[in-house]
C-alpha cells in the first residue's frame, strides 16, 4: 500500500501532463472540438431513434433514453479500448527514450476518453429530464457501474495494447469483434425479444450489457439492482483487469524490442 502511494506521488505530475496532452490533442484544443465530439454521438442517437421509432415502429416508452443508455456505454467502451490499444505504439518515440512506466500512456489515453464520456453522461441526464423522467437520489448509485466499466476498460486496454505491440493485425480483428459485440449487446433492441430462450442467459456473459442494464434500471425504472447483479458487474471488471495486469507484468519488458 505504501508502495502504491509512493508511486502515485511520484507519477502524479507526469500522468496529469500526459492526460492534458491527450485531451488537448483529441479536441484540437478548441471548445468546438469538445462540442463536436459530443455532437457526433447525439447525431447518431437521433438517426437511430428515427429509424427504430418511425421506420420500425418501436412503441416503447422513453425509447430514446433506453437507446441513449446503451449507446453511451458502448461508444465509451469502443473508443477507450481503441485508443488504448494503440497507446503504446503511438508513444513509442517516448517509451524507447524515457524511463516512465508504460501503463501511464495507456491510462492517460483512457482518461481522455473518460472525460468525454462523463460530459456525454451529463447530456444523458438532460435528455432524461427533457423526456419527463424523474431523476431520484438513486442516480448516485450509477457511480458503481461507471467505476466497474472503467476498470473493465483498463483491463481490456492492458490486454489489447500488449497484443498490438506484437501483432499488428489485432486492430482489424478487434474491429470485427466490436462489431459483433455491438449486435450481441441490447443497445437498440429490447431484451424481451429473448424472453424464454437461452439467449437471455447468455446475455449475462456480456459485461457491457450488465452496465447498460444497471443504468436503465436506475434511470428508467427507478430501481436499484440486486446484490448478485452488483457482484457480477465487479467480477467481470476484476477478471479482465487481472488478466491485463498479468499480461502487462509478463511482457512489458519485451515491448522495447518490438517498438
Amino acid at each position: 500500500m505504501q508502495l502504491i502511494l509512493e508511486k502515485i506521488k511520484k507519477y502524479k505530475f507526469v500522468f496529469s501532463e500526459l492526460v492534458k496532452r491527450d485531451f488537448k490533442k483529441r479536441y484540437k484544443r478548441s471548445v468546438l472540438g469538445v462540442l463536436w465530439s459530443m455532437l457526433a454521438p447525439l447525431f447518431q442517437l437521433m438517426v437511430m431513434t428515427f429509424v427504430f421509432k418511425r421506420v420500425f415502429g418501436r412503441q416503447m416508452e422513453h425509447y430514446t433514453i433506453y437507446l441513449f443508455a446503451g449507446q453511451l456505454v458502448f461508444s465509451y467502451f469502443k473508443e477507450a479500448t481503441n485508443t488504448g490499444m494503440s497507446s503504446i505504439i503511438s508513444n513509442s518515440g517516448i517509451i524507447t527514450k524515457v524511463n516512465t512506466p508504460k501503463y501511464l500512456f495507456l491510462i492517460s489515453k483512457i482518461m481522455a476518453a473518460s472525460i468525454n464520456f462523463l460530459l456525454t453522461f451529463i447530456i444523458f441526464f438532460v435528455f432524461a429530464l427533457a423526456d419527463k423522467i424523474k431523476l431520484t437520489w438513486r442516480v448516485v448509485t450509477l457511480i458503481y457501474p461507471v467505476v466497474c466499466l472503467f476498470l473493465l476498460i483498463v483491463g481490456a486496454g492492458l490486454i489489447l495494447s500488449a497484443l498490438f505491440v506484437f501483432f499488428k493485425d489485432i486492430q482489424y480483428l478487434y474491429d470485427i469483434f466490436t462489431l459483433a459485440l455491438m449486435y450481441f449487446t441490447p443497445i437498440f433492441y429490447e431484451v424481451s425479444i429473448f424472453e424464454g430462450s437461452i439467449a437471455l442467459k447468455l446475455l449475462n456473459l456480456n459485461p457491457l450489457y450488465l452496465y447498460i442494464d444497471y443504468i436503465r434500471q436506475v434511470v428508467l425504472y427507478q430501481q436499484i439492482p440486486s446484490l448478485t447483479f452488483h457482484l457480477m458487474c465487479l467480477l467481470y471488471a476484476l477478471i479482465l483487469l487481472r488478466i491485463g495486469m498479468g499480461m502487462y507484468k509478463k511482457y512489458n519488458y519485451m515491448f522495447l524490442y518490438y517498438l
Binding site: 507526469v14 496529469s16 501532463e17 500526459l18 492534458k20 496532452r21 524515457v98 524511463n99 516512465t100
Partner: peptide, 8 residues
C-alpha cells in the same frame, strides 16, 4: 512541462 515531467 511535459518533457520535464517525463524526465521525472
Amino acid at each position: 512541462f511535459l518533457r520535464g515531467a517525463l524526465l521525472g
